[in-house]
């Protein structure tokens, strides 16, 4: 299928460019991470020893050679060495990823649940004031800083209501607040787009036709409106993956959880370039793959695109 091939090609180009951009950004650093760490007089290392260390990190060759070296490393899953820890980056990532994936995955799921319930209830709820209130909810959610939300949730649920213990919580309990913290702001744009598309679709003539056949509002919403309204929402969901990753970083910091977020924070604080580059590229890969999947799922949901996709 040429469409698939072209779309995958495009995704690869974007990834290659993203890699290059981050490499240039991070390699153009004013400070040299290795020098910062090992040049301090306390360590008492001689210039020769530092040069050796630099060589062992591959930092002693021209930038373009480093670039080629890094590219070939990334292609086989070798992300280089962390300057800060001295361990391979892929080991650090492997240790941190499961925590973050669980948080992000659950967060996204809960966000979708919140968004769908808010959007549907704001269309079907029995009272106008309730619908109006539900309508304005996403607008508030989207304006809340993630880190602040996390702190407020801890304050309310852990310290005031004492529902979730601050220390000594089991793994499931310890996930509740972080997942909520991450999900609420992500759910807002989803709910907004979904509610707006439901409104748009509800105004289209085919809905009037179904209503004129005697269908009730709930049936129309569920069987006719929902699937049409889903299409733009899925596109937004794909774009929100970026927000999700950023949100996970902040959430982990607020709740003191070990994961990619903390790894990122430390990498920035210590100018641990290799770690940060690996994280950025990993995030970009996730983003590109998810959006590629969205594009490929689209024709399945919208039969109008099927022919185009095959023909193009």
């Amino acid at each position: 299928m040429p469409y698939l091939a072209r779309r995958v090609g495009q995704a690869l180009v974007v990834l290659a460019l993203a890699f290059t951009v981050t490499f240039v950004l991070l390699q153009a650093l004013p400070g040299d991470a290795i020098l910062i760490k090992f040049e301090s007089p306390e360590l008492g290392l001689s210039p020769e020893q530092i040069a050796d260390i630099r060589a062992s990190y591959g930092a002693d060759v021209p930038a373009w050679q480093q670039y080629l070296h890094t590219v070939s490393g990334f292609l086989v899953g070798d992300f280089g060495y962390s300057v800060q820890y001295g361990t391979p980056v892929h080991e650090l990532l492997a240790a941190a990823l499961p925590e973050t994936l669980a948080l992000a995955g659950l967060g996204f799921l809960v966000a979708v649940l919140i968004a769908v319930s808010v959007a549907f209830l704001s269309t079907l709820a029995p009272f106008a004031w309730l619908r109006q209130a539900l309508r304005s909810l996403p607008g508030v959610f989207v304006s809340v800083p993630v880190f602040w939300l996390g702190i407020v949730l801890i304050q309310v649920f852990s310290f005031q209501l004492k529902l979730v213990p601050v220390i000594g919580a089991d793994p499931v309990q310890s996930l509740i607040l972080p997942v909520l913290t991450l999900a609420i702001p992500i759910s807002a744009p989803l709910a907004q787009v979904l509610a707006r598309s439901i409104d748009d679709v509800a105004l289209s003539p085919f809905v009037a036709v179904v209503r004129a056949k005697g269908a009730g509002p709930a049936r129309v919403l569920w069987r006719d409106v929902a699937r049409n309204a889903l299409l733009p929402t899925i596109t937004i969901a794909g774009v929100l993956i970026g927000e999700l990753i950023g949100g996970a970083v902040v959430t982990e910091t607020v709740f003191g959880r070990a994961g990619v977020g903390r790894l990122t924070e430390q990498a920035v604080a210590n100018q641990d370039v290799a770690v940060l580059q690996a994280i950025v590229i990993l995030a970009a890969v996730v983003f590109v793959v998810v959006n590629l999947a969205v594009d490929l799922v689209y024709p399945v949901l919208d039969p109008r695109l099927k022919r185009k996709a095959v023909a193009a």
């Binding site: 003539p205 085919f206 049409n228 109008r304």
Partner: peptide
């Protein structure tokens, strides 16, 4: 309008 009066995805 027959074009917009049928649900495009069913």
């Amino acid at each position: 309008d027959p074009v917009s009066s049928l649900n495009p995805v069913r």
